[in-house]
Design a protein around this nucleic acid. Structure first.
Lengths: 334, 334
DNA sequence: TTTGAATATGTAAGCGCTTACATTTTTTGA
DNA sequence: TCAAAAAATGTAAGCGCTTACATATTCAAA
C-alpha cells in the first residue's frame, strides 16, 4: 500500500506537506496542493488509521453504549446522533449492553480499548469506578435519555418522572382508579425508576395509595409485555388502565388484550412511553409520551463534540416531552 | 497514561514480555505472567489503540454498511452479527447509506479509512470500482441478504426471487387476480428487484400478464407504504390483494386500509416480507415471508472471520425462508 | 555429567503519520 | 529598493506497540 512518503516523492514535496494537504489544506498553496492531490489519486493513497491515531493521539471515533440494538426506541436517537457526528468527521462505534450493568462496564472498557475518543451513555446508573475509569483517562462522555439536576454530569435528556406523572394524571382524570403498571427492571435503570416514581407521585397527589398499584416488572420485549398484561388481567378486581413503561410493552399488551377479547379502551385503557413508530401502527393507536429522540441525539452529539474539543458546552440540556393522544386511553368503565 | 514500558519497568521484564502477556499469555511462564498482570492492574494500564493498529497492521474492527438504522429489518441480523464478532474479540462499526449508492460508496471508504479490517455489505448492487477499491486493499467482505449463484462473491443470504414467488403463488391460490405491488426502489437494490421478479414469475406461471400488475415504487417508510396503498385503492377495478416488498410498507398499508374503512383481508388482502416484530403486532397480523435474520447474521460473521484469518470458508450459504401465515391474507372476494 | 532441544525472555527496528521547530520563499510597506 | 513580516515548506523526533531474531534458562535423554 502506498504511504505518505510515496506520495511525497511523487509530488516532490515533504511528507509534512502531504499531511497538511490532507488535514489542513489552507496552509498549503494552491499549486502545491493540486500537485499533491493528483499524486494521491494516481497512487490510490489512503492514510493508515493506526499511524494517524498514534501520531495525532486521537481516533476521530466516538462510542455509544445502548441497552439494545433490536428496537427502535434507541435507533432514531442514535441515527440523529450519528448523522451529526458524521457531519463533523467522526465515526460512531455502537455497542449494546442488553440491560446488563456488568456487560455495560465491559463494553465501555472495550470501546475505550478500541480507541473511542468520547462516549454516549444512557442513564446515570453505573458504578463510581466506571466513571472513575473514564475520568482518569480524560475521556469525555454525555449521558442521554435522562435529566437530573442533582447529578453533575453532562447530559441531554428529559424528565422521565414529570413526563410519566403527567400521563398518569390524564389517566386519573379519565376516572381510572384501579391501575396496573408494566415496568422495565428498575434496578440499574434510572429511567424505569423515574417513570415509576412519576406514577406513584401522581397517585399520591390524588390521595391514592401507590401501594394499591398492581405492578409487573419484567425485561424488555413485546412478548414479556403481553405476558405481564395477561397476569394483570387475572387480578380481581381487574385494572381498568395499564400504564406501560415503554411502547414495546404497550404493543405487547395491546396484542394480548386482543387475544383475550378485551376491547381497548372500552374494557381497559393502555398507555405507553416514547412514541416510536409502533405507537401509531398498533390498533388502536397508543396514547403515549412523545419523546423528541432525534433532537436529543443531535444535541448529545453537539455536546460531546464540544467536550472533545475542550470547550465548555454549558449546563445539561432538558428537552420537553408531550402527551400524544391516540385512541388507547379512554374513560374508566362505569 | 501508563505505557507498556511503565508496566515492564514495574514488573521487571521487557516490553515484549508484557506484550506477550496481553496477546499470547501461553508463551509466558505462570510466575512472570502473574507479576506482569499485577503491574497492569496497579498502574491501570490500557493498550494504545493506534499503536497496536500500527504495529500489528490490524485494528480488530469490522464494518457494516446497512441501508437504514431506523428500522428493525436490519437490526436483528446486525445484533446477531455483532454478538458473534464480539465473541471473537472484534468490534463492529456500523454506517448507514440511506439507500443512496453514492453515500454507500463514501461510507465504505470512510469505514476503510477508520481502519475496518473487513466489511459486511447488503446486496450485490454497487459499482465495479467499489469492489476494486476493496480488492486492491485486500479487505475481505461478505454480502448478506441475497443469494445469487451467478455472482462469485462471498455471501450469506436467501433467494429473494423464490421466496416472493412462493408467497405470490399462495396469493394466486386464494383466487386473487387483480393484484397491486408496493416495492422499494429497484434501481441499485437487487433485493427489491428480485422480489419483484418473483412476483412476475409467479404470475407468468399462472398464465397471467405481469404487465397487468399495479405497481407503486417508493422509498422506504411506513408513511410511504400508506400513501402508495391509498393510490392503489383509487384504481378501478381496485386490487383485491396488495403484495408489499417488506413489512414496513405492509404496516403502512394496513394502517391506511383501516383509515379507508377497508377490512383486511375481507375487502383486500395485504402481505409483507421479512417477518419482523411489526408483522405480529399489526391488526390483523401480517402474512409474510419469514427470514432467519439472526442465523444470517451469525453465519455472515463466521464467514467474515474466516476470510479475515485467510481461511477459505467454502461456497456461499443459502438460508431457507418460509411463509408465516397470519390473518392478512384471505380468499379473493367473489 | 554432558549435550541438545525446548521454552522463556530480551533486544531493538520499524510500522506510518503528525507536528514543533527551523528554514526558505514570498509579500508588503516604508 | 530594502527590510520586516507573513506564508509556505522542510526536517526529523517520537507517538506506543509488535514481533523477528537473539540470547538465556530449563529440562530431558544419553
Amino acid at each position: 500500500m502506498p504511504t505518505l512518503e510515496d506520495v511525497a516523492a511523487r509530488a516532490r514535496v515533504s511528507t509534512a506537506t502531504v499531511s497538511r494537504c490532507l488535514n489542513s489544506p489552507d496552509q498549503v498553496s494552491e499549486r502545491t496542493r493540486q500537485r499533491v492531490m493528483e499524486a494521491v489519486r494516481d497512487l490510490g493513497y489512503a492514510p493508515n488509521f493506526g499511524a494517524r491515531a498514534l501520531a495525532a493521539k486521537r481516533t476521530n471515533t466516538f462510542g455509544a453504549i445502548i441497552p439494545t440494538m433490536e428496537n427502535a426506541i434507541f435507533a432514531r436517537g442514535l441515527q440523529a446522533f450519528q448523522d451529526e457526528l458524521q457531519a463533523n468527521g467522526i465515526t460512531l462505534l455502537v455497542a449494546s449492553s442488553s440491560y446488563d450493568p456488568d456487560r455495560e462496564e465491559d463494553q465501555i472498557r472495550a470501546l475505550v480499548a478500541r480507541g473511542a475518543d468520547a462516549l454516549l451513555l444512557i442513564g446515570h446508573d453505573r458504578t463510581a469506578q466506571t466513571y472513575d475509569f473514564l475520568d482518569r483517562r480524560g475521556i469525555p462522555y454525555v449521558v442521554a435519555w435522562v435529566h437530573d439536576n442533582s447529578v453533575r454530569r453532562h447530559s441531554v435528556g428529559f424528565d422521565n418522572f414529570a413526563a410519566m406523572k403527567a400521563l398518569t394524571e390524564e389517566v386519573l382524570a379519565q376516572g381510572h382508579r384501579n391501575i396496573g403498571v408494566i415496568t422495565a427492571e428498575r434496578s440499574g435503570n434510572d429511567r424505569a425508576r423515574e417513570r415509576f416514581r412519576g406514577i406513584c407521585s401522581a397517585l399520591s397527589d390524588h390521595g391514592l395509595d401507590p401501594a394499591d398499584l398492581l405492578i409487573e416488572e419484567t425485561t424488555y420485549s413485546i412478548d414479556n409485555g403481553a405476558e405481564r398484561f395477561a397476569r394483570l388481567m387475572d387480578q380481581t378486581p381487574r385494572p381498568t388502565a395499564v400504564l406501560c413503561g415503554n411502547d414495546v410493552f404497550a404493543a405487547g399488551a395491546l396484542m394480548k388484550a386482543r387475544d383475550l377479547g378485551l376491547r381497548v379502551p372500552q374494557d381497559v385503557s393502555i398507555t405507553g412511553f416514547d412514541d416510536i413508530d409502533l405507537a401509531g401502527i398498533v390498533t388502536p393507536g397508543l396514547t403515549t409520551v412523545h419523546v423528541p429522540h432525534r433532537e436529543m441525539g443531535r444535541r448529545a452529539a453537539r455536546r460531546l463534540l464540544a467536550l472533545r474539543a475542550g470547550d465548555d458546552p454549558g449546563p445539561g440540556e432538558e428537552l420537553e416531552t408531550t402527551i400524544k393522544w391516540r385512541q388507547s386511553l379512554g374513560p374508566a368503565p362505569t
